[in-house]
Nucleic acid binder design. Structure first.
Lengths: 219, 219
DNA sequence: TAAAGTAAGTGTCGTTCAGACACTTGCAGG
DNA sequence: CCTGCAAGTGTCTGAACGACACTTACTTTA
């Protein structure tokens, strides 16, 4: 048996949020080589005693201060030459952050951390543009057969907010009546009995996820 | 920046075929420690200048002689302690082999290679039982929104063979008329104009995939 | 206190898709 | 020519999907 070549294992997180009707992804400005100063997904090297998911969550918090509301494994990327430092394999995660104001704290390996609209991304380090594209494909697909969109909302929300999130992810408007009919028919949200008074118009009924913890898959 | 800990990166393949109405997965008997003599997925260490997919295909051929007709990345598994030799991360692949008789050639790191019905698997090395379960979930899901089932069939096949494949994967019978109506409506297969005479009954029309190369995704 | 502005909320109809269901056709072997 | 066997074919019913417009409840301003 030949001696196996070790590789460096990293994780990267593509964390999305919806802010003001736009889908955004969280990026850091790299402090160190390679790609110093370049924008990249938050991520870093796997440590000895953590799982892959723990690594992804840890690096994300260290570099951005953002604690994700949802995290799932996306895919792995390990083409030779993807990292000028040597052979690396990254396990990419798809993360979601609910839309509540939160400050960003760039730290560690990051010089800066910012949310970028996915419709106007800067050029990115490594193969991170590809990873974001794959994450978007996954997110859009999963929207139609799971309750994943709820992870982009606070605990209680009006149905119009859920519709906004879906529209921002899909990139096109949805019919309000059909949307409500469908969502309520699925039973993934339940009425809180409370209303939200906000602005100079009719108050909206607040809903919550029918099941806390995790997401539901339909079909 | 702390010095990153290297890990060993491996790939493993869960390759399925349908044989005599049963869904089977390809396993090897491990020749070496750890888990020597135990059944496991074919796989091995990543080499310096190959992609992850190349590694998966290479190890599969080396250990079993099987050349897959389809290979896609499934997921990565890297819990600390999953391998007694030290920290390893494995990138698992889902493979399919079309149902044409082919000899198995155990070699390399494998003492033996055999197809096992997924309904009666032996106990497995590492976390490979989990990987197979995840691969099955993916395969069953993908059956309903892609043309993946065609990769389990030879180039030309009667519709009844396609139905058999789907039934074997799903584990329950399908209605013949509804099945044909749906498949033909999708346009993923086309008539070859030829018939297959086989046994003492009416010859079946042969079909082929409408697109060679890759699989089609619907919806 | 009335009018204007704004987002919330609500129902029907036509089309399409999914699922249940049984008989006829074409060939081989006896 | 009769039997056995898999191939092949159509209809109907209920459910889901998509198009489509007005009323309600509240705030602000005149």
């Amino acid at each position: 048996m030949p001696i196996p070549t070790p590789a460096m294992v990293t994780t990267d997180c593509a964390v999305f949020r919806v802010s003001e009707h736009k889908l955004e992804v969280l990026l850091i400005a790299r402090a160190n080589a390679p790609f110093a100063g370049c924008w990249a997904l938050p991520g870093g090297f796997l440590e000895p005693d953590e799982t892959l998911a723990e690594c992804a969550a840890r690096e994300l918090v260290e570099e951005t201060g953002v604690v994700p509301d949802y995290l799932e494994q996306l895919a792995s990327y390990g083409d030779p030459g993807r990292d000028p430092r040597g052979r690396t394999v990254t396990i990419a995660y798809l993360g979601l952050k609910s839309d509540t104001a939160q400050s960003l704290a760039a730290a560690d390996d990051a010089a800066d951390a910012r949310w970028f609209a996915v419709s106007s991304l800067p050029s990115l380090a490594f193969d991170h543009a590809r990873i974001i594209a794959d994450a978007l494909t996954r997110l859009r697909a999963k929207l139609s057969y799971s309750s994943i969109a709820l992870k982009l909302l606070p605990a209680e929300f009006p149905l119009s907010a859920l519709q906004n999130v879906c529209e921002a992810i899909l990139g096109h408007p949805l019919d309000k009546r059909n949307f409500r009919k469908q969502i309520l028919g699925l039973g993934v949200v339940e009425d809180t009995g409370r209303r939200q008074r906000l602005g100079q118009h009719r108050p909206a009924m607040l809903y919550r996820a029918a099941t806390t913890r995790g997401i539901q898959i339909f079909r």
